Simulated assay, not measured.
Amino acid sequence: MLYASLKTLHLLAIIVWIGGMVFAHFFLRPSLGMFEPAVRVRLMHAVLGRFFSAVLAAIAVTLVSGLWMIGNVAKQVVQAGGHFSMPLEWTVMATLGIVMMLIFGHIRFSLYKRLSRAAQAADWSAGAAALAQIRLWVLINLGLGVLVVLVTLLGLPR
């Protein structure tokens, strides 16, 4: 029951993160084209601030639940007298997940700070430049997230 609950939390956290990237990149951002730069930068700053707080929570849930689930399976195998060898799909999932977390750290703690400074200074061109960098890294993270989902669901060719 605990394993199933943690797996559910793990998946929900990932849905929040990947779903939020899809929404922001493919729906919110293109819809803001009709607004002047000042409105676009301020709105994206406010939305991203809230979203990035949710992603930080999602990362914590994903990391803790993922490590617990791997550890639990390894413990059960060893207690049954076996030798635990993590499946390749799990290794890919964990590795790409850590890469995504590092990329998010760059987005949140470097690029978003640039956006915050630009919004505070009413420097709309600097804000647009920061948003362009955020958009690029979010697209990379989105691609990695989709790859993780595909590897996890479909496996890897053997």
Rank of each mutant, 00 (worst) to 15 (best):
L156F: 01
E36F: 04
V41F: 10
G127R: 11
A130R: 07
L12E: 04
T152A: 06
L11H: 04
F35W: 11
G143R: 06
R40S: 14
A118H: 07
L43Y: 07
L153E: 11
F109V: 10
L111N: 08
G33N: 11
V92F: 06
G82L: 05
R40E: 15
A13L: 02
G19F: 03
V47Y: 08
W17R: 01
I98C: 07
V151H: 02
I14S: 12
L2H: 12
Q76T: 04
A118W: 08
A24H: 05
S125H: 04
M100E: 09
S31D: 12
L43P: 02
M1C: 05
L96K: 06
T91A: 09
A38T: 14
F26P: 03
L28R: 07
W90Y: 12
W68K: 05
A128Y: 03
A118Y: 01
P157T: 12
G33A: 05
S125V: 14
A38C: 07
L147I: 15
L115W: 02
K113R: 15
I18Y: 00
D123C: 06
M86P: 05
G19D: 09
R135W: 00
I140E: 00
R50V: 08
T95G: 10
V22E: 03
L153W: 02
L139H: 01
I134G: 00
V78D: 10
T62D: 08
I103Q: 03
L102Q: 10
M44H: 11
R117I: 05
A129Y: 04
P30H: 07
V41E: 14
V73D: 09
A38F: 05
P37Y: 05
G143D: 13
H10K: 07
R29Q: 13
L28A: 15
L96W: 00
L2E: 14
L115I: 13
V151E: 05
I140H: 01
K7R: 07
A119F: 00
K113N: 07
P157V: 09
T152H: 05
L32Q: 13
L102C: 08
A128M: 15
M34D: 11
L115C: 10
L131K: 10
L154I: 03
I134H: 00
T95K: 01
V78N: 11
G19N: 09
G145F: 02
A118V: 08
L111Q: 13
A132P: 12
G127I: 06
G143P: 12
P30S: 14
A57K: 04
E36M: 08
V151Q: 08
F104G: 06
H10L: 03
L28Q: 13
R40W: 09
L9E: 09
L142H: 01
V41D: 13
H45M: 06
M101K: 01
I103Y: 00
